[in-house]
């Protein structure tokens, strides 16, 4: 069973509503931004229900013929929705957007809206902790060393970007110098072109170097000493790279 956790009142009501419909032959759809946990929620409440994707209309048609209960993900991708027959079936669906409102309104008895993570601050904290635990196991490191508060709340793509932020933080701390060079190698190999590439790419080295130095030593004078370069050269580079 997929785990689903929430502290959001709105999501708790969705959980309650869907749980109550477990014994009813009704059609329900959960609509919300991508990566907000719609599919995880349905899999949590209906763990044994077959799942088909709206991008595969034939699979949906076959599943509807063979089952009284199915989960259709990405419902918005399904063509000819108006011809679907949901009578006396338990249909559960997810959609990233509503699409044709009238069709959805006429097909589904229960239309839920899943709030994005930006409206579920406590869920963000929970998910960060969960991703941290999972990631620490994968990277074989101690999760305790990474306070969740220090990991940025990147929720531009809800769970997807949040997970990436957590994994990125863990990956950073496990990287050796050689790994960093490998990452840069991959990047240069993929992007190197034109006739001014040296100047265009030198920032990849200089910007993090100067930023980290300034954060660590506080003053440009001290940093110039540490870097072994002239103070004016450092100031020029700070200006060039628009640091601060």
């Amino acid at each position: 069973m997929d785990n689903f956790y929430t502290t959001s009142d709105a999501v708790k009501q969705i959980v309650k509503g869907l749980t109550l419909t477990k014994s009813l032959y009704v059609s329900s759809i959960v609509i919300g931004e991508p990566h907000t946990g719609k599919k995880t929620l349905l899999r949590h409440i209906f763990p044994d229900t077959p799942v088909v994707c709206g991008s595969d209309p034939e699979a949906v048609e076959k599943a509807l013929d063979q089952n009284d209960e199915i989960i259709i993900t990405r419902f918005e991708l399904l063509p000819n929705k108006e011809n679907l027959d949901f009578e006396n079936k338990r249909i559960l669906a997810t959609a990233d957007y509503i699409g044709n409102h009238n069709v959805v309104d006429s097909l589904f008895a229960f239309i839920y809206t899943m709030p994005p993570l930006s409206e579920r601050p406590d869920d963000i904290l929970y998910l960060k902790r969960r991703f941290l635990r999972e990631g620490a196991e994968i990277f074989d490191i101690d999760a305790e060393k990474f306070p969740v508060e220090e990991i940025p709340n990147d929720i531009r793509q809800n769970c997807k970007s949040l997970k990436r932020a957590v994994y990125f933080r863990l990956a950073m701390h496990t990287m050796e110098q050689e790994d960093i060079m490998k990452v840069l190698y991959r990047h240069f190999f993929d992007t190197l072109q034109g006739n001014n590439a040296y100047k265009e790419n030198i920032g990849l080295f200089e910007i993090p170097l100067i930023r980290a130095g300034l954060d660590k030593y506080g003053s440009q004078l001290k940093l110039s000493e540490i870097l072994g370069i002239n103070r004016n050269t450092l100031r020029k580079k700070i200006h060039e790279h628009r640091i601060d």
């Binding site: 009501q13 309650k16 009813l24 229960f110």
Partner: peptide
Amino acid sequence: NDKLVETDLNILLEANIALFRTRNN
């Protein structure tokens, strides 16, 4: 008749109230 299913009206009502509560507190 073929569309009719024996139903506990209270469960249907409760499920609809849960849906309603996602929009109105």
